[in-house]
């Protein structure tokens, strides 16, 4: 039953993997891999000696770590709260509404956020704050580097919350109902049931999602940053992925982009193995 998948991966993943060679050559598609000049670790060195490196590293890690700390528990919490709702139609409505933003692409979603936060007289948030007397001059939300992380994390949260919680909702749905019945007979309250039955019941899913989330800590969403970034918040919004895009892909330096991609993959794999190992030690759950 497993072999077809192995075969599949050999063909569709392992064979094309020879492409990583591109990281070590100055790739020129016209003459092909074989005749492209070998440059070794040049592109890796270039990244580390770049004066922008500390800035992009800080932005990537900062935004992703905080983002993970906020949105990861938020999705679980959302699923748990939803599970507590007994009114059927309300539950369904909330669930459907929460997943709607997933279908609005970032270009459009980001446009809406920018318009709402605008510092001009059409910005609904600034107008609201002004009217309530909380501020006396409009805040340039999108132009203030110190606010960018917050805005990015919050808007990603709104966009992805419902969608990210689906897996947990499914896992909760799979918990044996008899456990709850038994707990009720024991006189357990809502919170105790959540803590003693629901959470342990979905812990395997949580652990796996967390391991993958940790391994992806160097990846940032390009779609969202491309829309939300501007000259004013550049110092807070430029991440590794964006920088590679600006310095690499936009300037036809595909080898540079591939090299940084490879580097990130190695880091991700190490993180995954570490997270998996730790998780095995602590919870006895993991990927393998």
């Amino acid at each position: 039953m497993v072999l077809p998948a192995i075969l599949f991966l050999v063909v569709f993943s392992y064979i094309p993997m020879v492409g990583v060679v591109m990281s070590f050559v100055d790739y020129n598609p016209v003459v092909g891999f074989a005749q492209s000049e070998w440059v070794g670790l040049k592109y890796f060195k270039e990244l580390f000696t770049d004066q922008a490196f500390p800035m992009i590293m800080k932005n990537t890690l900062g935004m992703n770590l905080i983002g993970l700390a906020v949105s990861f528990p938020a999705a679980i919490l959302f699923a748990l709260l939803l599970n507590e709702v007994r009114v059927g139609w309300f539950k369904k409505t909330v669930q459907t509404a929460s997943y709607l933003p997933h279908f609005v692409s970032w270009v459009i979603f980001g446009g809406i956020i920018i318009q709402m936060l605008s510092a001009g007289n059409d910005g609904i948030i600034n107008n609201l704050l002004l009217r309530m007397g909380l501020i006396d001059r409009p805040i340039n939300f999108m132009g203030e580097p110190s606010l960018f992380w917050g805005i990015h994390i919050a808007s990603s949260l709104i966009k992805g919350l419902g969608w990210n919680s689906i897996m947990y909702i499914a896992a909760i749905g799979g918990i044996n109902g008899e456990l709850y019945e038994a707990a009720e007979i024991d006189g357990a309250g809502r919170f105790r049931k959540m803590w003693n039955i629901t959470l342990p019941g979905i812990s395997a899913t949580i652990v796996i999602m967390l391991i993958f989330a940790i391994s992806g800590i160097l990846n940032s969403s390009m779609d969202s940053t491309l829309v939300l970034q501007n000259d004013l918040n550049y110092t807070a919004s430029e991440t590794i992925d964006m920088y590679v895009y600006h310095v690499g892909i936009s300037n036809y330096r595909f080898s540079y982009a591939t090299a940084i991609g490879l580097l990130k993959s190695v880091v991700a794999l190490i993180l995954l193995l570490t997270a998996n190992y730790t998780s095995k030690k602590i919870t006895d759950k993991g990927l393998f």
Partner: peptide, 19 residues
């Protein structure tokens, strides 16, 4: 491990295109 490895490493567009 064999499977998970493929989640992280890809050869990029060109080899896929050739394939």
């Amino acid at each position: 491990i064999f499977m998970i490895f493929t989640m992280f490493f890809s050869g990029g567009l060109i080899p896929t295109f050739i394939l």
